[in-house]
């Protein structure tokens, strides 16, 4: 249990940043409709690989539930984060050609180069943001705007999330 405490602190920190900082920055409505950075999927993406899938799913649901309660998502956050928990092994394999089952994630993430790690994080954030924004509008009426929102938000999330990832690797995994 003790060895996972760093993951708990990391998760709480990410949730704190997401809820109290990223969702409260007043960047203007005209910008906010195009860019809504979401880094909370990192909690699921950076979980240890030795964990069974069932625990990853539970963590994803709890994270999404907290987000829903905190930001009034009414199930939207949980519904869009759960699929990321399920496809995480395939995403990692597709983007890095390395299997999660073959090794512990701490070692695996350490052995990935910057490009591979960024591809994995970016692909997962893109899938999550696509699901999230589509579920939010439930329409393909303005598909260009929807695509732009997804892409710009993913880029912004990746930009902010990348610092979290590097910090996590250097402060948690390298220990």
């Amino acid at each position: 249990m003790y060895k996972y405490m760093s993951y708990v602190w990391m998760s709480l920190a990410v949730l704190f940043v997401q809820i109290f900082i990223l969702d409260n920055i007043n960047i203007g409505a005209s910008v906010a409709i195009w860019m809504r950075p979401m880094i909370f999927p990192l909690i699921v993406l950076l979980l240890p690989t030795e964990w069974k899938m069932i625990w990853v799913i539970v963590v994803a649901y709890v994270t999404g539930y907290i987000m829903d309660i905190s930001l009034g998502g009414e199930g939207l956050y949980a519904a869009t984060l759960l699929p990321i928990a399920v496809i995480r092994p395939w995403l990692l394999y597709l983007t890095t050609h390395r299997s999660l089952e073959a090794d512990g994630q701490s070692h695996l993430l350490l052995r990935l180069n910057v490009r591979q790690l960024m591809t994995y994080i970016a692909a997962a954030l893109l899938v999550h943001h696509a699901l999230f924004f589509f579920m939010e509008v439930l329409s393909f009426g303005d598909v260009v705007r929807l695509m732009l929102t997804i892409v710009l938000s993913t880029l912004m999330s990746l930009l902010i999330g990348w610092f979290v990832v590097r910090l996590f690797i250097s402060k948690v995994l390298v220990k």
Binding site: G73, G75, A78, A79, M135
Partner: peptide, 9 residues
């Protein structure tokens, strides 16, 4: 869990 979340949403 997905069903609960979707139903809630």
């Amino acid at each position: 869990l997905e069903g609960i979340a979707l139903w809630q949403y």
